[in-house]
Amino acid sequence: MDSDYLTHSPYSTPGPLMDALLGPDPLPRAPEALAALVRGVLLHREERETLAYAVPEERLREDAESRYVTEILRILAERGDTPLTEERAPAARFVATCRDFALLLCSLLRETGTPARLRGGYGTYFQAGFHDNHWVTEYWSEGRGWVLADAQVYGDLHDTPFDPLDVPRDAFLVAGDAWRACREGRADPETFGVFTVPEIKGLGLVRADVVADLA
C-alpha cells in the first residue's frame, strides 16, 4: 500500500463544508457505500433524458468549471440541505462529468482511510467496438492491491456486465496500457476517442491521456 495516496491533493480535499453537509451521520467507510453516496448526489450531464430533468444551461457551464471537491460541495450546499448521505432529487445534484464522479469518490475514500487515486483512460463498456475517453477511481484493497471503480455506472441507471467497483482491466484501459496496445498494433488508434465528439480521437489523444493519467 502506498500511503501517499491517502494524502489529499488541492483537488481532492473536501474542506470545512463536508461536516456541514453530512449532518448527524458520519461518512461510511465501505467503498460500496461511498460509491452509492457519490451516485446519489451527482448527475452526469448525459443522463438528463434518463432522469427526465432539463438541466439549466448555466448549470452545465458552472458545474463543468468546478474542478475541486470544495467547489462540488459548495454547489451541493447551495442546491439543497439534504444530508450528503441521502440520495438527492436531480435538481439538487451537481451536474458532473466522469472526472467529477472519479474525483469525489477518490476524495471520500481518502477521507475515510482508503488509499485512492484517479486514473485516466478508456472504457469499452459505453459503445461496442469503441474505447471511450473516461476517468475512474483506483483504490487499494487489502489482499488484492489496486482495484478500478467506476462510480458513474454504479447503481440502477446503468447495466454493466461486471461489478462497477471491480472494473476488469480489459474493460477499462488505463492510458499507458492503451498507448502500448496502439503502438504494438493490438488496437486501432482510431477506436480511441470521445464518442460524443467524433473528431476527437486517435493516437494524439491517447498520448495526451498518458500525460494526464500520470499527472
Rank of each mutant, 00 (worst) to 15 (best):
F101K: 07
L51K: 10
A35P: 01
T97E: 08
L43P: 00
D81M: 10
L42A: 06
P28I: 09
L103N: 04
L105Y: 00
R45P: 01
R79I: 07
D100K: 03
F101Q: 02
V41H: 00
L60Q: 12
E78T: 04
A96R: 01
R74N: 00
E47A: 13
C98K: 06
E87L: 02
E49H: 07
A89R: 15
R74T: 12
R88L: 08
Y53L: 06
A102W: 03
R67W: 14
P90N: 05
I72D: 01
E49L: 09
L76C: 08
E86Q: 13
T70E: 10
I75A: 10
R74D: 12
H44I: 04
R45V: 13
T97G: 12
V69W: 05
L84S: 08
A91W: 06
T50Q: 13
A30S: 14
F94M: 03
A64E: 10
V69L: 05
A33E: 15
R79E: 07
D63M: 10
R99W: 11
A64S: 11
E58R: 12
V69D: 03
D63H: 15
P90W: 02
S107M: 02
S107Q: 01
E62F: 09
E71T: 10
P28S: 06
E46L: 14
E65Q: 13
E49K: 10
